[in-house]
Design a protein around this nucleic acid. Structure first.
Lengths: 194, 194, 194, 194
DNA sequence: GATGAATGAGAATTCATTCAT
DNA sequence: GATGAATGAATTCTCATTCAT
């Protein structure tokens, strides 16, 4: 069986995803993990820490992948497409983590929240840089602010948690491709579309 | 001064928007509204009812507007654009209500939740019908499922609550136009884009 | 029956005096008072507040009495004697309160502790002023610092909580007279004692 | 570096003196001592045992010294004076130990508490015997019960923990002399003071 | 209509102690 | 000798809701 902290994070992920951080009692988490409350507080300073852990894992993973993709040699449109597909696929592949991430953004206590915001901003900015690169080089339309485009797209990604189901008709890959396609299409330069 | 129930809804809206339903105590709501707990329970059966009220108001309003727009005489692309702009603008104009709506989706107790889901689905389906009409008539590309397109777009709208600020550089109208533009552009038929 | 907050303060006084603040559970207090925990937190913000209440009552009462005595017309030695007797008698008459006061000095949370220290210091200084008046006027010996004398005497008073019993051979009045006598005697000018 | 049990007693002394027995977690003690909890429970049966150890050391030391002083050849007044100075000086020289002793009197569990009370009583009685000897031989006034005098004086000594500071204007020796002086003066026979 | 005292179930967290290694 | 993971009971405090007035 997995280690105690691992089991705790898994249990917490499942429960937080399903009911939301505030609706989950520590007791439920430890029951599902099959340990006692004392054990949990041995490894995690607080309920908050569990959230932080879940939170951080996915964000770090996606940030790393984004950086690798963004730094690649392909044309910017291809890199943006790959990044868009990737964030959808990894969010769906780690669906519980992602749902916790998407909905419990502001349940962290002040200091950890600040820390997370910094990490999230880095992610946002890396993504925006891709958009801006395309705008600068004339590959993407420049009449829409890059920031707004990033928010626009990540809104769609975050919303996945509210409707996507693995039992539905679409695979993660398919959703990722559609999303990327919609994004890339909407960025096509205006004159080209005459 | 406004009526007691009105003041209560206003106070609840502000607080739920700022801290999330679960983080707001009934005591805080009545304090902000300047009434007592007894008064609140005189008008509302439960804390839940306050959420339901806030929730329902915005949804009903937006549904009505969507139906009026969708039933109009303009070409489908123009109706979709107008609907997209409208949902952004009304969400920003009623920002606290919208934020409550966006984030507290599943905090309602079972029966009211079901009822709300029905209303939301009607909204979703009305919007989807517009997309499908465009796809059927060849105005929009048909290689992306209409359902997915609606989720894609409403993800962006819901996300507004997490980044938009009236103090920022963009007005509600501007954001609405950009969002609508991105949506419409991404729906342009594939062959047209050669 | 007394009011709920009154009953709570009484119960808390008895228990804190007997076992010390840290050894008393809120549950014990409310059980003894015959109310529920909720009721207690309706009237008192915290367990701390109960302590603060007990604390403050005695201190305020003794401060008032000291000020009245000190401001009287009698010769300073008589006023000091009266003050000394009074603090012993009122401490014994309110023995549980006094014991809480004597032993739980530093169990208050920071801000209330500071406030209490200010009040206690005022008491101390008023008492010291009496000693200094006697020293200045040659009634008391001046070769011992007044501050030290006050600490010396109040040490004895505080210690009452550790040994005095109403069932013992001495009444409060008798102890008060003896204490005052020891104090006054020890303050007699040095030359007089040749 | 000192031995593990020694380090533990030192750490506990410092912490118990500063915050009171009940406010110190075993974890804090072992952290400060730089050992683990297991190590502590290897040497001490319980948290209580640490207190007992601290407690006992000072008490035994002061009892021994008192007995040596009391058994000396000097006149009783001089022996009492020496004893009074000594208890002040040794209390200040071992200030943390003394503060633990003064304030944590009744935090020991039942059996150890009883044992300690016996030792403390022996100390008290030895001191009282000195007073009584002086009263019998006419050196001290006899109109105040010897027991009360001992309580009176040890109240002052115990109170040291609440106000004395090595950074203040008075050395331990000076305080000891003043205290002894006040005590001896207050014991001067009544007729002598005419 | 409206009050606010009171309830009671449950929340997160702490902590001395044990025990397999 | 020593570790540190794990326990489990207890603790303070919160809060939506009820109800006599």
């Amino acid at each position: 069986m997995a280690s105690v902290p691992e089991r705790l994070v898994e249990a917490a992920t499942r429960l937080f995803a399903a009911k939301g951080y505030d609706r989950v009692a520590v007791q439920e988490v430890v029951d599902l993990a099959g340990v006692t409350k004392g054990a949990m507080y041995h490894y995690f300073g607080s309920k908050d820490d569990l959230l932080y852990e879940i939170y951080g894992r996915l964000l770090r993973m996606q940030t790393e992948r984004l950086e690798r993709i963004a730094a690649g040699p392909a044309p910017v449109a291809e890199r943006l497409r790959a990044a868009a597909v990737d964030v959808v696929v990894t969010s769906v592949d780690n669906f519980d983590q992602a749902r916790v991430y998407f909905r419990s953004a502001d349940h962290l206590a002040e200091d950890k929240r600040r820390e997370m915001r910094v990490e999230r901003r880095r992610y946002h900015e890396r993504f925006r840089a891709l958009v801006e690169e395309g705008q600068r080089t004339g590959v993407f339309r420049a009449d829409v602010p890059a920031d707004l485009i990033v928010h626009y797209f990540f809104g769609s990604v975050h919303h996945l948690g509210q409707w996507y189901s693995a039992d539905g008709p679409l695979s993660a890959e398919q959703v990722g491709r559609h999303f990327a396609d919609l994004l890339l299409t909407s960025l096509r330069p205006v004159e080209e579309s005459r």
